[in-house]
Amino acid sequence: MRKLFVMSLAALLVMASAMPTFAIGEGLEKDDGGYYFEKDNGERARNEWVYVEYEGKGYWYYMTDYGYPLRSAITPDGYKVNSNGHWIDEGNLSSDSYEYDKDYMLFISNLVFDDFYDNNPISSGLNKKRENFSSADKALITYAYVYFKKDSRISEKRSGRYDLYNVVSKDNLMSIMKDLTGSSNETDMQEFAKYGTLKGDTYWVQAGGSFGAAGDSYLSDKNIQLSIEGNRVKITGDVLRYQANSGYVPIKKYNAYFTISDAPQLGFLRFDELNIQ
């Protein structure tokens, strides 16, 4: 028998251990708009939570007024759902790697790493925490994010026939920097000015071309392991360094930590710490 449970999430959380289950193969349908859930009475679930158990794991989805799962957003009752539409349980974070954007996590971690071993001996360790970011750190991370146009707050405009720019208002830029690094202020904006031209209340950042020359060392995207430590999501991988006769080879391991934020545009992830020993 198909069993689909629709209630408020707050009410159901206290009942989770005794809750019957709903098989994802039953009642799950797909049309041109995506996946939707059909209740026992034949109606679609709308503006309500549904609980699904699949292969021994349970997932909460918030179904919108259109009948499809809300994704990468905060629900009307204040809960966070990721790009899969799954509720993010901040008190018991999932260790399933597909629940997180590892490409984004590695992108930010490499910006924090900033070719560290190009300027420091291999024997050196690195421990960099978000709370210790300088204005220069925050400006670089924000510039790279704006350069690659990873956010709906950033628009694309052309100046002249060939010059392409990513354009963002000062208010939105400060909001993006806060989402990325935890804070933003006028000193940070002054540091950012080296990367973009302020026209009125809007920053213009030249797009296209090469972002910058690759360094001799970087954090690898191969064989990344994801785990949970306390309230932080951790990715672990190899630090690679170029050697003349061998190409890029592993020299150390890195651990990068992220906390859950309030920014859906960033997958609700905020960099917290990079550790290399």
Rank of each mutant, 00 (worst) to 15 (best):
17 S>T: 15
97 S>W: 15
113 F>I: 15
258 F>I: 12
42 G>A: 10
126 L>P: 07
160 G>T: 04
242 Y>I: 03
59 Y>K: 13
97 S>L: 13
142 T>P: 04
138 K>C: 04
126 L>E: 07
10 A>I: 11
203 Y>H: 01
59 Y>D: 14
96 D>M: 11
118 D>Y: 00
242 Y>H: 09
170 K>P: 00
81 V>N: 03
179 D>K: 00
124 S>G: 08
87 W>I: 13
172 N>P: 06
244 A>M: 14
102 K>Q: 12
90 E>D: 09
84 N>S: 12
83 S>F: 05
193 A>K: 14
42 G>V: 09
110 N>V: 08
239 V>H: 02
19 M>Q: 11
233 V>N: 01
41 N>V: 11
123 S>I: 15
266 L>C: 10
26 E>V: 12
170 K>Q: 10
238 D>V: 08
215 G>C: 01
106 L>V: 11
19 M>N: 08
16 A>C: 08
246 S>A: 14
170 K>V: 15
137 D>H: 02
242 Y>P: 03
32 D>I: 14
107 F>K: 01
201 D>P: 05
128 K>S: 09
206 Q>D: 01
269 L>M: 11
91 G>F: 00
60 W>P: 07
88 I>H: 00
31 D>E: 03
73 A>P: 09
191 E>Y: 13
250 P>V: 06
211 F>L: 11
119 N>W: 10
107 F>D: 03
173 L>Y: 00
204 W>T: 14
208 G>L: 01
271 F>Y: 04
149 K>Q: 12
109 S>D: 05
110 N>W: 01
204 W>H: 14
19 M>S: 13
18 A>H: 05
195 Y>T: 06
210 S>Y: 11
250 P>N: 02
13 L>M: 06
224 I>Y: 00
248 Y>H: 03
87 W>N: 08
261 S>A: 06
186 E>K: 12
253 K>D: 15
123 S>L: 12
213 A>D: 12
219 L>V: 10
143 Y>P: 11
111 L>A: 11
133 F>V: 11
32 D>S: 13
96 D>K: 13
88 I>Q: 03
246 S>K: 13
151 D>C: 00
182 G>P: 03
263 A>Q: 07
191 E>P: 07
54 Y>C: 13
234 K>H: 06
48 E>D: 12
184 S>Q: 08
43 E>L: 10
106 L>S: 04
68 Y>A: 07
118 D>F: 00
217 S>W: 04
252 K>C: 07
128 K>W: 03
192 F>L: 06
209 G>A: 10
116 F>L: 08
21 T>P: 07
46 R>I: 12
11 A>P: 09
203 Y>E: 04
123 S>V: 15
240 L>K: 14
4 L>F: 14
31 D>H: 04
197 T>H: 12
140 L>A: 12
231 N>I: 10
167 V>Q: 05
